[in-house]
Design a protein around this nucleic acid. Sequence first.
RNA 1: GGUGAGGUGGCUGAGUGGUCGAAAGCACAUCUUUGCUAAAGAUGCGUAGCCUAACCGCUACCGAGGGUUCGAAUCCCUCCCUCACUACCA
Length: 423
Amino acid sequence: MLDIRLLREKPDYVKERLALRGGDFAAMVDSVLAIDEHRRAAETERQGLQSERNRMSKEIGIAKKNGEDTSAIETQVRGKGDRIEEIGREADALDLQQRDIMLSIPNLPHDACPVGETAEQNPEVRVWGEKPVYNFAPKDHVELGAQHGLIDFEAGAKITGSAFVVYRHHGAKLERSLINFLLDLHTEEHGYTEVNTPFLVKAEALVGTTQLPKFADQVFHCENDNLYLVPTAEVPVTNLHREEIVKLDQLPICYTAYTPCFRREAGSSGLGTRGLIRMHQFDKIELVKITTPETSMAELEKLTLNAEKVLQILGLHYRVIELCTGDIGFGSALTYDIEVWAPGQGTYLEVSSCSNFGDYQARRMNLRYKDENGKNRFCHTLNGSGTALARLFVALVETYQQADGSIKIPAPLQRYFGKETIE
RNA sequence: GGUGAGGUGGCUGAGUGGUCGAAAGCACAUCUUUGCUAAAGAUGCGUAGCCUAACCGCUACCGAGGGUUCGAAUCCCUCCCUCACUACCA
């Protein structure tokens, strides 16, 4: 959520920054400001009346103690109640309206965010490694997976539906190896604290991290219990500190977590894509940081490097791109995407998206810290995948396939996987 | 799931209709005094909103939401959570 004070003081600036995202948000800003003005007028009237009522009620109390007759003044106060209720209802309704719109206005892109309209304009930040060359035609992971019995799409479709998959045998083991490898890497080498959270969350948590209310059609909802399946560990992990005032010396808070991620992918063009590229359920290791405004940008750089390290250790060629203002996520101020090369696909696959949300999420979840002067300020929150597993799986088996169809396991993963090769 | 108890400020914990935003203690901050790895005293110390140039002031918040009342932390209803015992279960 944006700071309403910023909208009041610099509406044109806010509109300008929002326009860089490509949508038309000027009308929303204007209507928020109009509602805000009415809301405050109603609030002022209500509070004035409440003040009067409190004063008179006090007088009644004192008079009664003195044994005086209070029926006259009681009648007088009684009359105030109706108007208080009326104007109060109005103030509350306006407050809700204002909040509704505020929740639908995206974050302002950071000054450092490159200006652009589409994904094609995302600048490449850096490249690591090179595309591997093969003296044979590399297969894709679907073929390799079938050949070795690693992944079974038919079984996933049978028990659940399309875009769900069953990992089998070495495939299941490889997936589990990656989870352990990544959690160990981030906790032991990068200083993150591991957390293991519920995979079902309340609506409030999703509001906090911006999946609700705008993207309600993208999350699985269990209506009976009014709980949602997590679309990413970002949701339960970042919300761990919602409605808290954390101490300055606790920051930065750095968490890593494994969760499956459940996404409806409604209207997504990639849903029919062959293989593991876009599933309704996939595993992911997430990195989450809660910081101060002063340090969040530096922490984003570190977080991105922590995610890149995964691919470096596994020897996978990748590139880092920076999302432009037209492509950046709803709540993000600045985002780096890490894309790994998948030889069988002949394309780069997004395996990590590292974002600084500034205080946008913190405002929504009322997450603050006490600064040096004892003043409460909103934290900055960030997160990034470290990394998404299905696509890492794809890149791994496609990159390390051999001419004879076997798949080599990179050395650092062998102690988790227990074998050097899948053959 | 059943029965019982309970949810008050960073913590402990008073408060069963009237000047309670809430006693007291602890913790914390500043100051004073004596001094040496500390004691004593004074003062301050929740969050948010409204108003204001600012100070001041006002309003709301005692798990959440409703209700009764001129007035609710206090009474009534619903829900949530915690603890204990009990049943069941991975």
